[in-house]
């Protein structure tokens, strides 16, 4: 085979979009499998030494972790239905409270202040003054 031919890629208008992704996918798969095999070999070699893979850190804070995930998802989900201002105020109050981790009077006060000021400032400055499209 001609060297020149070997270094030529067939270019056709309707498949322009596939050329580069195919190359990248090829490299990705080759490297990925190499890394995977290497990790597995290493693991089987010194099974005694290495601790089993642990996803979470020791004694991770379940309440705060899952609470954050649930709050974030709910926030995004209802944002467009209820409106930016109300959703954001409620979300910020709840998130601040969750992070403080108690329901003392001071915490509630802090969370309400935080929720109200941030939301209103963002709503006013960006939504009204700068005319940014808000959710």
């Amino acid at each position: 085979m001609d060297v020149k031919e070997f270094f030529t890629i067939e270019m056709s208008y309707s498949t322009y979009h596939l050329v580069f992704p195919r190359i990248i996918m090829f490299i990705l798969i080759v490297m990925g499998s190499f890394l995977l095999i290497r990790t597995l070999v290493k693991k089987s070699k010194d099974r005694e030494n290495s601790a089993p893979f642990k996803f979470f850190t020791n004694h991770y804070d379940r309440v705060k972790f899952y609470g954050t995930i649930i709050l974030l998802t709910t926030y995004a989900a209802v944002l467009q239905h209820i409106g930016f201002v109300l959703t954001s105020i409620i979300f910020m109050i709840l998130l601040t409270l969750l992070f403080i981790g108690n329901l003392r009077k001071k915490s509630i006060l802090v969370s309400i202040t935080n929720g109200l000021t941030t939301t209103i400032v963002v709503w006013y400055v960006f939504g009204q003054l700068f005319d940014i499209t808000l959710p």
């Binding site: 974030l72 926030y75 944002l79 979300f91 992070f99 963002v122 959710p135």
Partner: peptide
């Protein structure tokens, strides 16, 4: 304190993301 700054960051990030392409959820 983190419990104040993180909620602010989240809302700023959400607003910024929503607005970057002029309002895409």
């Amino acid at each position: 304190p983190k419990y104040v700054i993180f909620p602010i960051i989240v809302v700023a990030c959400v607003v910024g993301s929503y607005a970057i392409n002029n309002g895409i959820m």
